[in-house]
C-alpha cells in the first residue's frame, strides 16, 4: 500500500472539508472492504482517507410508514438485522445478509457499496429496482441517474452520500447466483412491484454495470407471476463474458435468478 494520510471526521461538514484538503485525490473511507484491498494492490492511492464510519448522522435505518431511510454508513449486518425494515421490505434484509461473508457485513456499508458501484455488487440492483433516491451533501439523485457504468456514478469529486431513501413496494424479491470464491453476483436480479408495474434490475451480468431488463419487466406484469418468465428470451448482447461465465451463460442465469426473485415476492 502506498503512503496515505488518515483523518477521522466527526460530521458531514468536517468530512467534506477534510476531503478538500486532498486536492481531488482524497477518498471517503467507511467499511473500506473494497478500498483497502484496492489500495493494497495499488489500484487506488488516495492522498487522504477521510473516515466517515463513525459519523452519527450517517448511521441507522429509519422506517416511517413505508418510507425507508438508510444512513450511508449503515453496515450490511445492520441492514440485514433491522426488524423495522424487515417488516416493510424483507427482500432488502435478505440481500444485505448475503453480501460477502459475516466479517465483511460487519464493516461494509450501503453508501460505500453504491459509491463504488462494482458491476457485481448487490445494492445497485436493489436501489435501481426500488426507484430509490440517493441523498448527498449537495443534492438528491434518482437511482436511474446515479449508476453510470462500471465503477462509475454521477457523484462529483468530494461529494458525500448521506443516505438512501425509498418507498417500500408492496412486494419485492432478490436472488443471486454468487461466484463461489468471491461471493459477488455472477447474476443478481431484484424484482420490485411498483404501482405502475414491475421494476427489474440486474447486477453482475451487464457489460456496463447494473441495468433494468425491459424484457423481464414486460413479461412479469403487475402480478409478478414467476411462471411468465419461462417464455422470455434474455438477450446475451450487452452481457459480460469473462473467465467465470460467457454472456450466453449469464443470460441463462439472469432468467433463472429473475424467476427465483419473482417467486420470492410471493413469500
Amino acid at each position: 500500500m502506498l503512503e496515505t494520510t488518515y483523518a477521522r471526521a466527526g460530521s458531514v461538514a468536517e468530512a467534506v472539508k477534510l476531503n478538500k484538503a486532498g486536492k481531488g485525490e482524497g477518498k471517503y473511507l467507511a467499511g473500506g472492504h473494497t478500498l483497502i484491498p484496492a489500495m493494497k494492490q495499488r489500484l487506488a492511492s488516495p492522498s487522504v482517507l477521510v473516515d466517515v464510519a463513525r459519523i452519527g448522522e450517517l448511521k441507522g435505518v429509519k422506517v416511517t410508514g413505508r418510507k425507508v431511510t438508510i444512513g450511508a454508513a449503515t453496515t450490511h449486518a445492520e441492514v440485514a438485522a433491522d426488524e423495522k425494515l424487515r417488516a416493510v421490505c424483507p427482500a432488502l434484509c435478505h440481500l444485505a445478509g448475503h453480501i460477502g461473508d459475516q466479517h465483511v457485513r460487519h464493516r461494509g456499508t450501503i453508501g460505500g457499496s453504491i459509491a463504488n458501484n462494482d458491476p457485481a455488487a448487490d445494492y445497485p440492483a436493489a436501489l435501481l429496482a426500488l426507484d430509490a433516491t440517493i441523498v448527498t451533501d449537495k443534492r438528491e439523485i434518482a437511482a436511474d441517474k446515479f449508476f453510470k457504468g462500471l465503477f462509475e456514478t454521477s457523484l462529483k469529486d468530494g461529494e458525500l452520500i448521506k443516505a438512501v431513501t425509498f418507498t417500500a413496494p408492496a412486494k419485492a424479491g432478490y436472488a443471486k447466483f454468487p461466484n463461489p470464491a468471491s461471493r459477488y453476483a455472477m447474476a443478481g436480479v431484484f424484482v420490485a412491484g411498483q404501482k405502475d408495474g414491475p421494476r427489474v434490475a440486474v447486477t453482475g451480468a451487464g457489460d456496463d454495470g447494473v441495468f433494468r431488463s425491459k424484457e423481464l419487466e414486460a413479461a412479469l406484469g403487475k402480478g409478478l407471476d414467476a411462471s411468465k418468465i419461462d417464455g422470455v428470451k434474455v438477450p446475451p448482447k450487452g452481457l459480460m463474458s469473462d473467465i467465470h461465465a460467457t454472456a450466453e451463460y449469464r443470460a441463462a442465469l439472469v432468467k433463472a435468478m429473475a424467476k427465483r426473485a419473482a417467486a420470492a415476492t410471493a413469500s
Binding site: Y6, L29, G32, H33, I36, P37, A77, H106
Partner: peptide, 27 residues
C-alpha cells in the same frame, strides 16, 4: 491471503468479527 477472503486474520473489533488485514490500525 491478504486479499480479504480467507479469514485467518479475524479478530473482534467492538464485539464484532472483522478482518484485521482489511482495517487500518488508525480506523
Amino acid at each position: 491471503c491478504d486479499t480479504s477472503q480467507c479469514g485467518a486474520c479475524v479478530v473482534h473489533v467492538d464485539g464484532k468479527a472483522a478482518k484485521s488485514c482489511t482495517i487500518l490500525a488508525a480506523q
